[in-house]
Amino acid sequence: MDTLQDMRIFIRAVELRSLTAVARELGVTQPTVSKSVSALEKKLGVRLLDRSTTSLAPTMQGARFYQRARQVLEEFDDAVAEAQGLNERPVGLLRVNAPLAIGQLLLAPLCRDFLRLYPDVQLELIFDDRMVDLVEEGVDVALRLGGALPQDAVARHIAVSPRHLVAAPSYLARHAPLRAPQDVAQHDYVRFAWLTGGDRVELHNGARTVVVETHGRFRVNNALSIREALLAADGIGLCPAWLVQDLVAGGALVRVLPDWCGVPQELDLLSPSRRYQPLRARLFIDYVAGALRALDCFGGTDAPSTPA
Rank of each mutant, 00 (worst) to 15 (best):
M1C: 08
D2K: 08
D2L: 06
T3D: 08
L4S: 13
I9R: 05
I9C: 01
I11V: 14
R12F: 01
E15Q: 14
L19Y: 02
L19V: 00
A21E: 05
A23I: 01
R24H: 09
E25F: 09
E25S: 15
G27E: 09
G27I: 05
T29R: 13
V33F: 04
S34V: 02
S36Y: 12
S36A: 15
A39K: 13
A39D: 05
G45F: 05
D50P: 00
R51I: 01
Q61T: 10
G62Y: 09
R68M: 10
R68F: 11
R70Y: 06
Q71C: 12
V72P: 01
E74G: 08
D77N: 04
D77S: 13
V80S: 00
E82H: 12
E82K: 13
A83C: 06
G85T: 03
N87K: 11
R89H: 14
P90D: 11
V91Q: 07
G92H: 03
L94S: 10
R95L: 03
V96D: 00
L100I: 12
A101K: 07
A101S: 13
G103Y: 07
L105D: 04
A108Y: 11
P109F: 10
C111Q: 10
D113W: 04
D113K: 07
F114M: 08
L117S: 09
Y118K: 02
P119N: 08
P119F: 01
L123T: 02
I126Y: 05
D129T: 07
R130V: 11
M131N: 07
M131I: 09
D133I: 02
E136W: 09
G138Y: 04
D140S: 03
L143V: 08
L143N: 00
G146Y: 01
L149V: 05
L149E: 06
D152F: 03
A155M: 06
A155C: 11
A159V: 00
R163H: 10
A168E: 05
P169N: 08
S170K: 13
A173N: 12
A173E: 15
A173L: 15
P177M: 06
P181C: 03
Q186W: 07
D188L: 06
D188T: 08
D188R: 10
Y189S: 08
R191Y: 05
F192L: 11
A193K: 12
L195M: 15
G198D: 09
V201H: 04
E202H: 15
T209F: 13
V212I: 14
E213Y: 05
T214G: 12
L224H: 09
L224M: 10
S225N: 15
I226G: 10
I226F: 07
R227D: 07
R227C: 02
E228R: 15
E228P: 02
L230E: 03
A233H: 08
D234E: 13
C239D: 07
W242Y: 06
V244H: 05
Q245R: 12
L247E: 12
V248L: 06
R255V: 05
W260T: 00
C261K: 04
V263Y: 07
E266Q: 06
L269E: 02
L269V: 07
L269D: 03
S273T: 09
L283I: 03
D286H: 04
V288K: 08
A289F: 00
G290W: 06
G290F: 00
A291G: 09
L295K: 11
D296G: 11
G299A: 02
G299Q: 09
G299M: 12
G300K: 13
A303V: 04
A308S: 15
